[in-house]
């Protein structure tokens, strides 16, 4: 069996090493192979199919450090029975892992430029590997700008890391919430309002965006208004993925299968389909 077929069709048994509570409904699972072979390496932005025995299989983005592929990390929001079962795992439990699948954030194409990350809600999870990569290869990039929006302070992911990243050289991390209580002294407003606080060099910037599709549309408009070319803007699309290899057709979007041709697309590719009504 070829390496690709092996990665896509065969499942690796993985042991849960840790479960960390990120927010009231979101958890981060760290797993490692329980089979003789380690989990295969991944690129930032790729996802795995996680199988909970007796429950089902789910596509989950890898949110860990691509420099440490032997321990794979997944940040999961508990929104239904399968995700609830997944986040209820305990260290030592066994799950199945297939993948990694899909396209990745083109971090190599961004070398020598500013990397702008715009994330909304749990959309920060698939972008965290990019942040790890840029910080690990700091000399390859100019500035790292992270704009992150969440619903409220209690919904913010990776709060400790956000603060750490903000202290790194040539790195600006701006966080906002849609609604803040009196104890929140940070920014309040949707993520697009953060653009007024950053100075972009449009021809020297590559933007990676992940979040709800409506949010991404408005972020793209802001970026285009600031002079970024559609080919320098990348987005991660979200559709109902099942097989992970483009066979079942559940995730078809125009001519693309999001699981196979995506989830990361350049905005140039997605532009005609994002604005198509009812697609």
């Amino acid at each position: 069996m070829s390496e690709v077929a092996q990665a896509t069709l065969t499942m690796t048994r993985a042991r849960v090493l840790a479960v960390e509570k990120e927010t009231h409904d979101t958890f981060t699972l760290t797993v490692a192979s329980a089979d003789p072979d380690p989990l295969p390496p991944f690129e930032p932005g790729q996802f795995s199919m996680l199988y909970v025995f007796g429950v089902g299989e789910l596509p989950i983005s890898i949110s860990g450090d691509p420099g440490e592929p032997e321990r794979q990390v997944y940040t999961i929001r508990s929104v239904g029975q399968a995700t609830h079962t997944l986040v209820s795992q305990r260290p030592g439990n066994m799950i199945g892992v297939r993948g990694p699948f899909g396209t990745s954030w083109p971090v190599k194409a961004a070398r020598g430029k500013d990397v702008l990350i715009v994330a909304g809600g749990i959309g920060l999870a698939p972008l965290r590997p990019v942040i790890y990569h840029v910080l690990r290869h700091r000399d390859d990039y100019v500035r790292l700008l992270v704009l992150y929006g969440a619903r409220s302070p209690r919904d913010l992911l990776y709060r400790r890391q956000l603060a750490e990243w903000g202290r790194a050289p040539d790195t600006q991390v701006l966080v906002t919430v849609d609604y803040g209580g009196l104890s929140w002294r940070g920014h309040v407003g949707v993520v697009t309002t953060l653009f007024r606080q950053v100075r972009l060099h449009p021809s020297e910037t590559v933007a990676f965006i992940c979040g709800p599709e409506i949010m991404m549309r408005y972020v793209v408009r802001q970026l285009e208004a600031r002079g970024l070319a559609p080919e320098d803007i990348y987005i991660s699309m979200e559709r109902n993925m099942k097989c992970g290899v483009g066979f079942c057709g559940h995730c078809q979007l125009g001519p693309y299968f999001v699981c196979k041709d995506g989830p990361v697309f350049s905005y140039r590719q997605m532009q005609p389909w994002m604005d198509t009504h009812e697609l």
Partner: peptide, 20 residues
Amino acid sequence: LQATRLQLLDLYAPRAAKLI
């Protein structure tokens, strides 16, 4: 006004069957 409309959409509210 635009920002307020986006706020009202409550974009980050949980939905079932999401990747990520």
